[in-house]
Design a protein around this nucleic acid. Structure first.
Lengths: 238, 238
DNA sequence: CATCAATGGTCTGACACTAGCCCAATAAGT
DNA sequence: ACTTATTGGGCTAGTGTCAGACCATTGATG
């Protein structure tokens, strides 16, 4: 309990954290074309423009961004996901350590199951508006009709949407954080059509359970889905 | 999705965050006698000793700590929870805003349900050691035999233990964070013997479901328990 | 072709935070 | 009474971060 409560108050310095955040936003596909203007983005991230600019420069030098001046300029995303290679996966796992991997997977399992259940409970209580139901269905259609190129991005968007639809920023942040911690791993495993189809059925089941207001079915469906993903990961590592 | 991923990278300055952390550690009862030595604590919190000392001085001036020099000295906790008053509750709610309150309660519901389910799944897979089972039972006995004075502290310890026993530091941190966000509220409502007994039965059900490896019963039991707490809160606000 | 709004680029002065070092006080043990 | 290990108290030099102002560039538009 002590070690949990008295854990570090900051993860690192502002510069490093910012680089990490932007990089993840890019890899996640949350930022598709270009970053928001520096002044705006700095405000959103709660840092000074100087620090943000340092981070942007680092990403530019690493080849993720192309920065252009003048009106209609900005920091344009030049990153395209590299073809998945098993070696990248092994390196990614080695970088984070097996303990951290287990931690990340456990964390993700807990928060995403929790989010789905909360959302199902909301639906069950009749407090899920038509718009929100429709957004959930739309995200489902999008991910299920995605090609291999867009799949990861839309899958991320789908999972995050569930958390965001609960209306709890804290929960959405936790789910985003959980996803961030496994992006590199997921990006390193190939997107097989067979897996997409498998996942599509599971996504369907998740949405169905949520809209039906069945919390337990929702939790079970998410757990099965994430378990399948984890198993896929283990398979590629074995 | 953008607003979730590009959320602030830092909550505030190191000093403020540290004061908040220590204060919560104290109010939570995680620190009973005295804080760890400054050098050690600064390392744990990932900040410099200077910043830590400023935070400690602030808490000393606010009457939470008594700092003594020399060997066997340290920062001794002088805080005893004040008698709960409805006014404090209203003020605490007003301070955080109703949106943030709903956010915190939703977040807590999701992560604690998730944690209990993960732990139940671990037990179900036979990967929950005898020691961990015993710790869970011990925490249960402690909270269920607690008097009104110790109740909040042991209740916190019980709930946090579930998260910690999953072996996921991230999940434990999330649950601790969730609890922190409602401590002031819980501390402001009186501990009635009737509520303790009610909670005791729910705690029993939670532990039973976890040890039986029944994930769905575990999730349901935690949800019911937290829902009861939230209802209690609403009752005192109405 | 000139204008102009939006955007990145740069500078400055101030404050926050850090690492490391040494000093001062205290109480248990001798 | 003395010693000593442990702990808080204080200092300094260096680095990180910030807010805000001003400059430079660009491309759409009149």
């Amino acid at each position: 309990m002590l070690t949990t409560v008295l854990r570090p108050v900051r993860a690192g310095n502002a510069f490093e954290e910012t680089v990490e955040r932007l990089l993840q936003a890019i890899k996640l596909g949350a930022v598709v074309e270009k970053l928001p203007p520096e002044r705006e983005l700095a405000a959103q991230l709660g840092i000074s423009r100087v620090t943000l600019r340092e981070a942007i420069r680092a990403l530019q030098e690493a080849g993720y961004l192309d920065v252009r001046r003048g009106r209609y300029g900005g920091a344009f995303v030049t990153y395209t996901p590299p073809p998945p290679r098993q070696e990248d996966l092994r390196r990614a796992v080695a970088d984070m350590g097996t303990d951290d991997l287990a931690d990340a997977l456990t964390f993700r399992m807990a928060v995403e199951c929790g989010a789905a259940q909360v959302l199902a409970a909301t639906a069950s209580a009749g407090r899920l508006s038509r718009e929100r139901r429709e957004e959930l269905r739309r995200r489902l259609r999008e991910v299920n009709s995605a090609g291999p190129d867009d799949y990861r991005r839309l899958d991320t968007a789908f999972h995050l949407a569930i958390a965001e639809l609960t209306g709890s920023p804290l929960l959405a942040a936790a789910c985003a954080d959980a996803r961030l911690r496994v992006t590199d791993l997921l990006n390193a495993i190939p997107v097989l059509q067979r897996n997409i189809e498998h996942a599509a059925a599971q996504h369907e089941a998740i949405v169905e359970a949520i809209l039906a207001g069945d919390t337990e079915a929702a939790g079970r469906a998410v757990a099965e889905h994430l378990e399948a993903t984890a198993a896929l990961l283990r398979g590629f590592l074995a």
